[in-house]
């Protein structure tokens, strides 16, 4: 257990990776959005997608955990289990903290009437319409999802090389297209549309969480036999 904790601490030795960069990216994106909101001469509410910027960084972080931190951890004789639990555990805490910031940002945004310029950075129509816990779950799961998908892709790459990555990407695409074709064939689009309409941000989070768990389990199984 202490080695798992040490894996988490190791990745905080350089504070930029897990703390500095996400906050810097968020702050930069926030200030830029604010500047743009102020420049747009309309009086109705302005919404931007800038708050998603850190999410993409989390995907890169997921990839690098596997391609660079994992080989280093092997050099320090860290077991694959300790590396996995320590890394994912640390990221969960980071995602939790970031979720807190998003919630707080949303509250301030509401109270200040969109930072005084009627611009909304943290508030996203539909997503943040529900109660606070639904918003929190959504942000948290999206962050976890981005990290895990990056991690998962990199595990595939580590284990099976570029061919493996290609096959799994194509495979995923083929399955999605197949499902779409099947839906068309069975004329089920109406049902799908109805189902989609019934989803709330909370239920979407639930489905995404299931996917996260599946991918995380898949990564672990692959990692168990991965070599640096």
């Amino acid at each position: 257990m202490s080695r798992t904790m040490a894996v988490a601490r190791m990745q905080l030795i350089n504070k930029w990776t897990y703390l500095g960069w996400p906050l810097t990216i968020l702050a930069a994106s926030f200030l830029m959005s604010l500047a743009i909101f102020a420049l747009i001469p309309v009086n109705e509410g302005k919404y931007g997608g800038g708050s998603q910027a850190p999410m993409w960084y989390f995907m890169v972080l997921g990839i690098q955990s596997m391609t660079l931190v994992f080989p280093f951890s092997q050099g320090l004789s860290i077991s694959r289990r300790a590396f996995y639990l320590g890394t994912l555990g640390l990221f969960s805490l980071i995602a939790l903290g970031m979720t807190g910031i998003y919630l707080l940002g949303g509250v301030i945004e509401g109270a200040t009437n969109g930072w005084g310029v009627n611009g909304y950075f943290f508030k996203i129509p539909w997503v943040t319409d529900g109660p606070w816990y639904s918003t929190a779950a959504f942000f948290f799961i999206v962050m976890m999802f981005m990290f895990i998908i990056g991690f998962w892709f990199a595990t595939i790459f580590k284990r099976w090389g570029s061919n493996g990555t290609l096959v799994s990407t194509l495979g995923t695409a083929v399955i999605l297209i197949g499902l779409a074709a099947l839906t068309t064939l069975l004329e089920w689009w109406g049902h799908v549309g109805n189902w989609m309409g019934q989803q709330t941000p909370l239920s979407i989070s639930g489905w995404a969480a299931l996917l996260c768990v599946a991918l995380a389990a898949g990564s672990y199984t692959t990692l168990r036999r991965a070599t640096p």
Binding site: R3, T17, T67, L68, F72, G75, S77, S79, R80, P228
Partner: peptide, 21 residues
């Protein structure tokens, strides 16, 4: 996956990779 054994070993390889930052 044996911490008791691994904690007594150090093997930095010739092409060792390190975290990016």
């Amino acid at each position: 996956e044996n911490d008791a054994v691994l904690s007594r070993i150090c093997f930095i390889r010739e092409s060792q990779k390190y975290p990016d930052d």
